[in-house]
Amino acid sequence: MIQEVLISTINAEGETHIAPMGVHVDANQLIVLPFKPSLTLDNLLQTKTAAINYSDDVRIFAGCVTGRRDWPLLPTECINGNYLADALAHTEVKLEQLEDDSVRPRLFCTRLHSVNHKPFQGFNRAQYSVLEAAILVSRLGRLPWEKISSELDYLRIGLEKTGGDREWQAWGWLMQAIEEYRLNSEDL
């Protein structure tokens, strides 16, 4: 199973980096698969710890892939780091094993500490649409434009039917990033 989460890591200077990522859940391990290059990868290799944040605020996912990374944080309890103040839950993890790869290494992490902060009320279709669009934005340059365009057309349906202010704001950030990419891309 893959869970869409926000990973917070710190560097040697104690600066927090937040990145959305799909984390594979396998028994007692969480497997992080960042693409190279990645600050999440660099920080995890350096500190051997991270906080896995579970959130239903899709603005954070969209914000992180569009350069908006200044979200309120709180200190973690068992590792040196921070978790998202608005997280529904967070899990503090320790890196146990690395399977290196030239494109996407596998980082096997064990849970050290988990906290539920608020109940999860479920995603509506607009939140799902924003999450999927954020994934598409994170893969600009890796996927053909036709695929991105057709998926965005479909995702917009769910947004239009169930979106609130947060989802529309996040969608706007993503569409702005796509438009900037298209204007600056020679491949389109």
Rank of each mutant, 00 (worst) to 15 (best):
I2E: 07
Q3E: 08
Q3Y: 08
V5P: 01
L6E: 09
I7H: 00
I7E: 00
I10L: 07
A12H: 05
E13H: 08
G14M: 03
G14H: 05
G14T: 07
H17P: 00
H17L: 03
V23M: 10
H24I: 12
A27P: 01
A27L: 09
A27N: 10
A27V: 04
N28K: 10
N28W: 03
V32M: 12
L33P: 02
L33K: 13
F35S: 06
K36W: 06
S38C: 11
L41V: 13
D42E: 15
D42S: 12
N43E: 04
N43M: 05
L44N: 06
L44K: 06
L44M: 15
Q46K: 11
K48N: 13
T49S: 11
A50E: 03
A50F: 02
I52Q: 01
S55F: 01
D57V: 01
D57H: 01
R59C: 07
R59I: 06
I60L: 00
F61W: 00
F61D: 00
F61M: 02
A62W: 00
G63K: 01
C64Y: 01
V65D: 00
T66P: 12
R69T: 14
D70W: 00
W71Q: 00
P72K: 00
P72V: 01
L73F: 02
T76A: 14
T76M: 03
E77D: 10
E77F: 03
C78M: 14
C78G: 03
C78T: 15
C78W: 02
I79T: 07
I79N: 01
N82A: 14
L84S: 00
L84G: 00
A85K: 13
A87L: 12
L88D: 04
L88T: 12
L88Y: 08
H90K: 07
H90R: 08
E92P: 07
E92D: 08
E92T: 09
V93A: 03
V93F: 02
E96G: 06
Q97T: 09
L98Y: 07
E99I: 14
D100F: 11
D100Y: 13
P105W: 05
L107V: 09
F108Q: 03
C109E: 06
S114P: 04
N116T: 10
H117F: 05
P119S: 13
F120I: 10
Q121E: 14
Q121F: 11
Q121C: 08
G122D: 10
F123H: 12
F123I: 06
N124P: 04
N124R: 02
N124K: 01
R125C: 03
Y128P: 02
V130E: 02
V130M: 09
V130F: 07
E132C: 06
A134V: 03
I135L: 15
L136T: 10
S138D: 04
R139L: 11
L140Q: 07
G141H: 05
I148S: 06
S150V: 06
S150D: 13
Y154A: 11
I157E: 13
I157A: 07
G158E: 08
L159V: 10
L159W: 05
K161Q: 10
G164L: 14
D165V: 15
D165K: 15
E167Y: 04
W168D: 10
Q169V: 04
Q169E: 14
Q169A: 12
L174F: 04
I178Q: 04
L183T: 09
L183A: 13
E186C: 07
L188H: 09
